[in-house]
Amino acid sequence: MSEPGLFCQINTAATGPAETVKKHVPVITLPEKVKAGEPFTVTIKVGEAPHVMENGHFIQFIDLYCGHIYLSRVDFTAVMTKPDISFSIVLQHEGSRTLRAFSRCNLHGIWEGTREVNVMT
């Protein structure tokens, strides 16, 4: 059953119910430091615990942003896909940057996970 309150906000590890958080907050894996202008791999997995991918309950998409700049989206279908993805991205400007991943569950709304990366010259 859908939880209507979760659809009224962007949910995070701090705002969502503990059991729901474990299966919905995107977990971002990437190198701690990267070189400006060079590609690196960012892996996003939805939840610390596996999320079901059934017809009535599944992750619909993952979006990736650097701060507020949109980078990419991957859409998923129920049953035939797994909400884990790897992106190859390039960041041009040095300094500390925040990567933000958003996942949307058809029953539990939108969830955000973040991770800092240091971009070096």
Results as ranks from 00 to 15, higher is better:
Ile59Tyr: 01
Ser96Asn: 13
Cys105Asp: 08
Glu48Ser: 10
Trp111Tyr: 12
Lys33Asn: 14
Glu32Tyr: 11
Ile89Tyr: 09
His51Gln: 13
Gly109Leu: 07
Ile44Ser: 08
Thr121Asp: 05
Gly5Leu: 12
Gly37Tyr: 09
Val117Thr: 02
Cys105Ala: 13
Thr77Phe: 13
Ser103Lys: 03
Ala13Met: 08
Leu99Cys: 07
Lys82Tyr: 07
Glu38Trp: 01
Gly67His: 07
Lys35Ile: 10
Thr98Asp: 08
Thr77Leu: 14
Gln92Asn: 10
Leu6Asp: 02
Met1Phe: 12
Ser86Gln: 12
Phe87Ser: 14
Tyr70Ala: 03
Phe40Leu: 02
Glu54Tyr: 01
Glu48Ile: 04
Ala101Phe: 01
Cys66Trp: 01
Thr98His: 09
Thr98Phe: 11
Asn11Tyr: 09
Glu3Met: 10
Leu91Ile: 11
Ser2Val: 15
Glu38Ser: 03
His51Ser: 14
Phe58Pro: 03
Val90Leu: 13
Glu112Phe: 01
Pro31Met: 08
Trp111Asp: 02
Leu107Pro: 02
Arg73Gln: 12
Ala101Trp: 00
Ile44Asp: 02
Tyr65Trp: 01
Pro17Trp: 00
Ile69Val: 13
Pro26Ser: 06
Lys23Thr: 11
Glu112Arg: 08
Thr15Lys: 05
Met53Gly: 05
Asn11Lys: 06
Ile85Glu: 09
Ala49Ser: 15
Val46Arg: 04
Thr114Asn: 10
Glu54Gly: 04
Lys82Asp: 13
Ala13Val: 09
Asn106Glu: 01
Cys105Gly: 12
Arg100Lys: 08
Met120Ile: 12
Val119Phe: 05
Ala36Gln: 00
Val42Glu: 02
Leu30Tyr: 05
Asn106Pro: 02
Ser88Trp: 00
Gly113Phe: 02
Met80Trp: 12
Ser2Trp: 02
Glu54Ala: 14
His108Arg: 11
Cys8Pro: 00
Met53Ser: 06
Thr43Val: 10
Ser2Thr: 14
Ala78Asn: 11
Met120Ser: 07
Thr20Asp: 05
Leu99His: 03
Phe76His: 05
Gly109Cys: 08
Ser2Arg: 15
Val117Lys: 00
Pro83Trp: 06
Ile10Gly: 04
Val74Cys: 09
Ile110Glu: 07
Arg115Gly: 06
Lys35Pro: 00
Ser103Val: 04
Thr98Val: 14
Gly113Ser: 04
Gly67Asp: 01
Glu3Thr: 12
Lys33Pro: 01
Gly47Lys: 14
Met53Cys: 11
Asn11Leu: 06
Ala101Pro: 01
Glu32Cys: 03
Ser103Asn: 00
Pro17Phe: 05
Leu91His: 06
Thr15Ile: 07
Val42Pro: 01
Ser86Phe: 11
Thr43Asn: 13
Thr41Arg: 08
Val25Gly: 04
Asn118Ser: 13
Glu32Trp: 05
Arg97Tyr: 01
Ile69Asp: 06
Met1Asn: 07
Ile44Met: 05
Arg115Pro: 07
Val119Met: 03
Pro17Cys: 11
Ser88Asn: 15
Thr12His: 02
Val74Asn: 03
Gln60Ala: 15
Val117Pro: 00
Ala18Ile: 08
Asn118Leu: 15
Thr121Arg: 14
Glu19Thr: 05
Asn118Gly: 05
Met1Ala: 12
Met120Cys: 13
Pro26His: 04
Pro83Asp: 04
Leu99Met: 06
Leu71Ser: 08
Glu94Arg: 13
Asp75Lys: 15
His68Ser: 15
Thr20Glu: 05
Gly109Val: 14
